[in-house]
């Protein structure tokens, strides 16, 4: 129940989380259709050398997104 909730951009490389909800509705529409669905596991698999964007594994593929976009995704980490 009391799993810590973070935004995806705070996760370090290799950290996983379960998508909980979104803080930005407009971006969430785009993310939803790309398969970032609440309940899906996401893992930060790579961070670009300049610190932004990041690459995540979600729904079985690799997705890259800017940090400010990642900060719209709230995740539960274990």
């Amino acid at each position: 129940m009391s799993q810590p909730v973070k935004v995806l951009s705070e996760l370090k490389k290799g950290q996983k989380g379960l998508i909980d909800n979104f803080t930005d509705f407009e971006i969430s529409l785009k993310l939803l259709e790309m398969g970032c669905i609440p309940g899906e596991t996401v893992e930060v698999i790579r961070i670009a050398p300049l610190g932004d964007p990041i690459a995540i594994a979600v729904s079985g593929y690799m997705l890259s997104l800017r940090k400010d976009e990642a900060s719209a995704i709230r995740v539960r980490t274990s």
Binding site: I27, M34, Y61, M62, L63, S64, L65, R66, E69
Partner: peptide
């Protein structure tokens, strides 16, 4: 149009 980067690798 908002600038989206979100892109499949």
């Amino acid at each position: 149009e908002r600038s989206f980067y979100v892109m499949e690798l």
